[in-house]
Amino acid sequence: MSLPQPVPPSWKDLGKSSNDLLGKDYHFSGTSLEVKTKTPSNVTFKVAGSQNSQSNAINGDIETKYTNRKHGLTFTQAWTTANALRSQVEVENTIASGLKLDLATTLLPDKGSKSAILNAAYKQSGVHGRATVDILKGPTFTADAVLGRDGFLVGGEAAYNVTEGKVTRFATAVGYNAPEYAITLHGLNNLNTFSASYYHRVSVDVEAGAKAVYDTKATHGGVAIEVGTKAYLDSAAFVKAKINNAGVIALGYTQTLRPGVKASFGLALDTQKLNEVSPAGPSHKVGASFTFES
């Protein structure tokens, strides 16, 4: 008799280990600040702001989230500097075990624009499926599913336009997850774009990963490749580095200054344009991020 299978990752989380390694904690596009506080009644407040180093534009938002774990209910309300009002209601494990429903809405009063998206996710041993309905646009229906057994994963996604009566997008993926490494292959954009990602936890303190992307419709041709690594200096700090085939090197450093206070710094250098010595120049970028949480 086979052992119960763990719940596989969702479609959007296939290859997450590699994507996080190569995409997170590189703060070189400006300066950002995030402050989080939580009340005894399970209400979380978050204020976030960022300044783009190229355009000097400042964007921010304030968010309130209430969680009732007993009834599996979460309500989130946010207001941004673009005067966008976002609301989300989530219900999990209430109607059925493993089922999560959420309704996300966005309203832009200045433009009279609005959106409403209904999501459903179902996860059990060996299966993780999701469905999304864009109520006001199309409407369009998107569904994806991932099946997993003994570390092997296979998944697919498809979008269907109800009004036009046709499939507008489809994709597929296969992968293998082990405790120390993960491999994922994607066929995206109606199988016009292919990607392969690899993640390896070399040791307790060192991680490494790589990703290759080939777009059959790209005018430049060739394969885009990116490799990176992460090393923990101690329990409160780590450094990250990556380089792509275009010769751009990115560095990141994150330090936990004290419990609830974290600072991150990033730098990107175009090795083909090192004569532009200013990090603030068009080919080089530098930035920082600060997070406060209580």
Results as ranks from 00 to 15, higher is better:
G129V: 11
N93E: 10
N19L: 14
S235H: 14
T172Y: 05
P259C: 10
G209M: 03
L251Q: 01
V248W: 01
K217R: 12
S115A: 11
A48G: 12
T142Q: 12
S195W: 01
R258A: 15
D150W: 00
A173H: 07
E92T: 12
S235P: 04
K111W: 07
L153K: 03
G72Y: 02
G72L: 10
K230Q: 13
A145Y: 12
K137T: 11
G228Q: 01
Y176Q: 04
G155I: 05
E34V: 05
A84I: 14
S264D: 06
I225R: 11
Y253Q: 07
T132I: 14
A104R: 11
N245P: 13
A145H: 12
V89D: 03
T163M: 11
T67N: 09
I249A: 10
T94P: 02
S115F: 02
N177W: 01
L233R: 15
R201I: 04
A159L: 04
K166P: 09
N19E: 10
P40G: 04
V239A: 02
A104P: 08
A231Q: 13
F265R: 06
T142N: 10
Q124K: 13
K100C: 02
T76P: 03
N52L: 07
S29T: 12
L73N: 06
V204S: 14
H128S: 13
N161D: 15
V133Y: 03
T31V: 15
S32T: 03
A280E: 01
Q272S: 13
F141R: 08
K211R: 15
L147Y: 15
L269D: 00
Q51I: 14
G138N: 09
E90S: 11
E63G: 03
A145V: 15
Q124R: 05
L257N: 06
N190C: 10
I135N: 09
G209H: 07
T64C: 11
D150S: 11
T132G: 07
N244K: 04
V154L: 10
S264V: 00
V91A: 11
L85C: 12
L73W: 00
S235I: 07
I58K: 04
V227A: 15
V89T: 09
V227S: 10
L267Q: 08
P40F: 04
S113R: 13
I117E: 02
N59I: 01
G126Y: 01
R130Q: 15
S113L: 15
K285W: 00
V239E: 03
P8K: 04
Y253P: 02
V146R: 03
S97K: 15
G49K: 08
L147C: 14
T172I: 07
L73M: 05
F28R: 08
S289R: 09
N275F: 14
A116Y: 08
S41C: 06
